[in-house]
Amino acid sequence: MPGAEIVLDPSNVLRLLAGLGVTVRIGLVSVALSLPLGIACGMLMTLRNPLIRAVLRAYLEFIRIMPQLVLLYLVFFGTAGAWGWDLSGEAASVVVFSLWGAAELGDLVRGALESIPRTQYDSAYVLGMGRRQAFARVILPQAVTRLLPPAVNLATRMVKTTSLCMLIGVVELIRVGQQIIDYNRFAVPTGALWIYGSIFFLYFIVCWPLSILSRRLERRWAR
């Protein structure tokens, strides 16, 4: 099959890897920011306070209903128009993905915490544990074991969805691929197949370990 030279060209390889770097960077930074935010949201959502619950519920629903692309436009163009902010595409992406991750992870954390049977709290209470001790020693370890598989799944979805960032001008993996294809449109007409094939492979090597990890954890903790 002709056209393989397009992905063997070292400069193209380097550009694709740089694009992958941007993809992974947005993904990792967003996941890292989502973790503390999501855990805090989830813990707040388990509180009885109706105001806090309503606010967080509205936040979660808003993030869920909105297509990620709309959120990206809203943060990238909206903040520029409304307040004259000059966010870079990458910064806007990190903001959107962190808000999304925090909302979804928050809901996962809430679900995991609420799924712990009340009898576990009772057992800790009669053994004399304080509320903090019960949370740290009894509730949290169980919540984390329930939480990890879906949280890893969420992280892979976040990495995959960073492909949308190119629509606000971020030159990430897919955008780099398109640029290479466009540049070689006439010289290498079959380039698209090779480039997208390579991109498939690159996403695969980032997300596959995560899916394996998630499946492992699920199996290990299916109790």
Binding site: V126, L127, Q142
Partner: peptide, 30 residues
Amino acid sequence: RQRLGMVFQSYDLFPTRTVLANVTLAPVVV
């Protein structure tokens, strides 16, 4: 609370801990 021990119908052991750790957890941390 430590002076009253209670055992429930549904056992309610701590699922992320081994048998030994279930028994030693409260003596050690409480």
